[in-house]
């Protein structure tokens, strides 16, 4: 299992009830991390969208997180 550090903002932080969590997944693929988060926190499924970023870039569900990379949860943005 791969352990990934995840940082959350906005409503994602409220759902996790914390700013940072560690997430275990078989290979560190974003799709696996997404599944695990939804399983542990079903409220994520009610969001309009849930995107992922690695460092400061959006990544797709097939991205595999490299060691020491930090994953950021991006719930629906609402700037402006």
């Amino acid at each position: 299992m791969i352990t990934t550090e995840i940082i959350a903002f906005g409503i994602a932080k409220d759902i996790l009830k914390q700013k940072k969590i560690l997430c275990q997944s078989p290979s560190g693929k974003i799709s696996e991390i997404r599944q695990k988060l939804i399983a542990d926190y079903p409220e994520f499924e009610r969001l309009s969208s849930l995107k992922f970023a690695v460092e400061t870039r959006y990544v797709s569900d097939d991205y595999v997180v490299k060691s020491r990379e930090i994953v950021v949860l991006i719930p629906p943005v609402s700037g402006g």
């Binding site: 409503i11 991006i74 943005v77 609402s78 700037g79």
Partner: peptide, 8 residues
């Protein structure tokens, strides 16, 4: 409004 990670 679509891409910038800012939350209101």
């Amino acid at each position: 409004k679509e891409t910038v990670p800012i939350w209101k």
